[in-house]
């Protein structure tokens, strides 16, 4: 059953690849945590990335990371490191890998994996507290990841 579901997903993903050169979450190639190729096959849009980063229902990255260049995002958190100057510390592939699945770069990090579909322990249906029905989509889409990475690349010291 599980295997069939997985096969179905792979086929769906394969169909997606043909159409848009998008990489499915399970097919992302991490090299020392970094991901060289665009997940969507397209370039990221930094303005869209800024929205994903600051919007609660999307990435909400500022919940844990401070970004001085984004004063409109209120109540920036301090769980993770400040993202000021992050483009000077990581290259694009490194940032793509961290945004997609930070656990590939930092073993055991608290940071959620934004481009992953599981396995999870007691996965829920968003914030309803109810059990998820079927496989969950990743927290962010391939293009949203690319948009976030494009914005982060503008954060030079």
């Amino acid at each position: 059953m599980k295997r069939q579901l997985l096969l179905g997903l792979i086929l769906t993903a394969a169909a997606g690849v043909a159409a848009s050169a998008e990489t499915a979450p399970a097919d992302v190639a991490y090299e020392d945590g970094a991901v060289a190729q665009s997940l969507s096959g397209a370039a990221g849009n930094p303005e869209e990335g800024a929205k994903v980063i600051s919007t609660r229902s999307l990435g909400n990255c500022v919940a844990c990371h401070a970004i001085t260049a984004m004063p409109s995002a209120a109540f920036q958190g301090n769980i993770g490191p400040s993202l000021d100057g992050v483009a000077g510390r990581w290259d694009e592939a490194g940032l793509r890998g961290i945004v997609s699945d930070a656990k590939m770069t930092f073993d055991g990090t608290m940071m959620p994996s934004f481009y992953k579909t599981g396995p999870y322990i007691r996965p829920g249906d968003a914030f309803t507290g109810k059990a998820a029905e079927g496989e969950l989509p990743p927290l962010l889409s391939a293009q949203q990841i690319e948009d976030v990475v494009a914005y982060l690349m503008t954060l030079k010291e």
């Binding site: 608290m110 999870y120 322990i121 998820a132």
Partner: peptide, 24 residues
């Protein structure tokens, strides 16, 4: 145990990060 799609345990927030802020 790190529950849910965000994979967070009680300890992630309340042992490792008390005193810090998640947004407000």
């Amino acid at each position: 145990t790190r529950y849910g799609q965000l994979e967070l345990s009680c300890a992630n927030c309340h042992e490792d990060n008390y005193g810090n802020y998640i947004r407000a």
